[in-house]
Amino acid sequence: MMDAALDVLTMVLLLGGALMSLAAAVGLLRFPDLLSRMHAATKPQVLGLLLFLMAIAVEQRSWAIVPVLIICWIFQLLTAPVSAHMVGRAGYRTKHLRKDLLSMDDLDDVVQHAATRRREAGDRASSD
């Protein structure tokens, strides 16, 4: 009885994980620009991996394996935002962002300001 319940739980967790992969892929396919694709691509994976790892733990029915699964997820938590931030920053800076999709952009003013300042500094350097 207990075994059957745990088996069902394992299957549900696996299906959840697979659905999170599907969420990432559909988002990748349908979202209009790089940064919105990034939301779909990197984030559902965090929950997806958690569900897969939980499925493994439930299926093994042992506590000894739990620490290594937790470590695996913690490493994922630590590294996933790093790549997301780097790719997002590169995307913003290399103008892969479609500005027409943005309803507001607080960073734009700052960037414009910095650009004019850099241009002025460049002018001064070249006139010397």
Binding site: L19, L22, G27, S103, M104, D105
Partner: peptide
């Protein structure tokens, strides 16, 4: 995560974002 999935399925390309 569920919200992003839902957005990907229903809104797709017609999406408004902000910084």
């Amino acid at each position: 995560s569920a919200q992003v999935f839902w957005l990907a399925l229903t809104r797709g390309p017609k999406l408004e974002n902000a910084v």
